[in-house]
Design a protein around this nucleic acid. Structure first.
Lengths: 249, 249
DNA sequence: CCAATATAACGTACGCCGTACAGAGTTTCA
DNA sequence: TGAAACTCTGTACGGCGTACGTTATATTGG
């Protein structure tokens, strides 16, 4: 099962995202707030991963029965919307003189965010959450490339390219870390286990480049640093490519 | 729940991937093969998505009891490994004169594959499957950038950048298509529903660029073509950036 | 030809999940 | 002082992956 963002009633979800729910005038005093539930859910997802995030676990954590959660939040999909928008609130607008430094800041900030909250990478965003932090993120991303002679469409495409890359590179990195955690083996240890089984099946002569390059990459970087290198390499290439576009204007 | 690739016993998984299981010499004749199960699983995932892919459904489809599947495949994680490697078998090696055309072929071929098999994008690859098609893919990707004066590490980084981008862009595209399917609304229809609710919450003056650029992007492209444009835009920028690197050698 | 043995197929059961629904308790307003 | 609005909870349903034990079937060694 995959967790989806953007599933529920848009009106209710937007009200929750922007926090405009008026305090109820009758009935027992609420013990919780949507805010607290979101905080607990994020803490749980950070600590144990998205698979451990169940309504029952959240309720446990808050000392409340599972169904009480539904008093504050329509369902799990909406809760995830709230978690996503709240996480985006940790991002900081770039503050640098050059467009290149600003885009670098955005990419690195995203990269760090995905490492703090790896569950973000497991969420399938069906429609964007449109909460204050998400639209704020988009706004300062566009500001980073404003006034460079790009069309509106190009500005949108450039920020999508950079943020999409940061997400993609972070996914590789987070998956590598998770691989170690789940299997209890480093990449090197895992390879030592697999290699003798693979050798008789796969004739290295059929894959000369893969054998050579794979070995070189494995020896030069251990798996812990390789994703960081890939991120820096890709970011440099992408910014070079954007520079070609901007210079042509 | 997320589907993981690379979970099970590596030896057994590798034997299945490379198809070296010897026919059992005793006992009742097998009614099925691992191959048939993988085919049925892919058909089901193509048609109804990864969420619909359960051992029970696959067994239904094959006219067999759920637990029989475990005779041929150790578990769901291993089955997913087999599905992934089999899907990669649909990719074709590039055959072009320039490195740029070869990398473009690789990116477009990946893009098309992810659209044929969107479930590939939902799988968290903990360790690579190391089946014949996966290692074959890596081999011809490296061949596309061989002999250009790049180091082994650079070759690896370049193909990772291009294929990672194709995956990332395809994810956006597939999610957009899925959004329409799940909600029964086009992007325009969805926006018409959301806008009046959002307007009183979000002051457009606080988000001048986002409002302007978002509107421009929405009007120029409908959601059905926008991801394709983003793919073409990003691919061009990335190849430009790689060109800068190659020219510097 | 007949056990012994290896394999296939199946039924049952466990502990998870999201959440629909109905009811009980609590606070406020007319 | 009801009535209405609201919170909170227990139960239940249908799904999931798969551990385990049993039965049926095909091959093999004696």
């Amino acid at each position: 099962m995959t967790e989806y963002s953007g599933g529920g009633d848009p009106r209710r979800t937007l009200e929750l995202l922007w926090g405009v729910r008026e305090r109820p005038r009758r009935g027992p005093k609420p013990r919780l707030t949507a805010e607290e539930i979101v905080r607990a859910a994020i803490a749980l997802a950070d600590a144990e991963g998205l698979d451990a995030l169940s309504m029952r676990r959240i309720a446990d954590e808050l000392g409340v029965s599972p169904m009480s959660i539904y008093t504050y939040v329509p369902g799990k999909a909406e809760l995830i919307d709230l978690m996503v928008d709240r996480a985006f609130g940790e991002l900081t607008p770039p503050d640098a003189d050059t467009w290149r430094a600003r885009l670098e800041h955005i990419a690195r900030d995203d990269w760090a965010l995905y490492h703090r909250h790896p569950w973000l990478l497991r969420i399938t965003t069906v429609r964007p959450p449109l909460g204050p932090n998400s639209v704020g993120k988009y706004e300062f991303e566009l500001r980073a490339v404003d006034g460079l002679g790009l069309t509106d469409l190009e500005m949108d495409s450039v920020v999508a390219l950079v943020t999409g890359f940061a997400e993609s590179a972070a996914r590789v990195s987070v998956n590598a870390a998770e691989a170690e955690r789940r299997s209890g083996m480093t990449d090197a240890q895992w390879w030592e286990t697999v290699a003798p089984v693979l050798a008789p099946l796969m004739d290295e002569a059929d894959y000369p480049l893969g054998s050579r390059v794979g070995k070189a990459a494995g020896q030069e970087y251990d798996a812990a640093v390789a994703p960081g290198r890939a991120f820096e390499f890709g970011l440099a290439r992408i910014l070079d490519g954007i520079e070609v576009l901007i210079s042509s204007r």
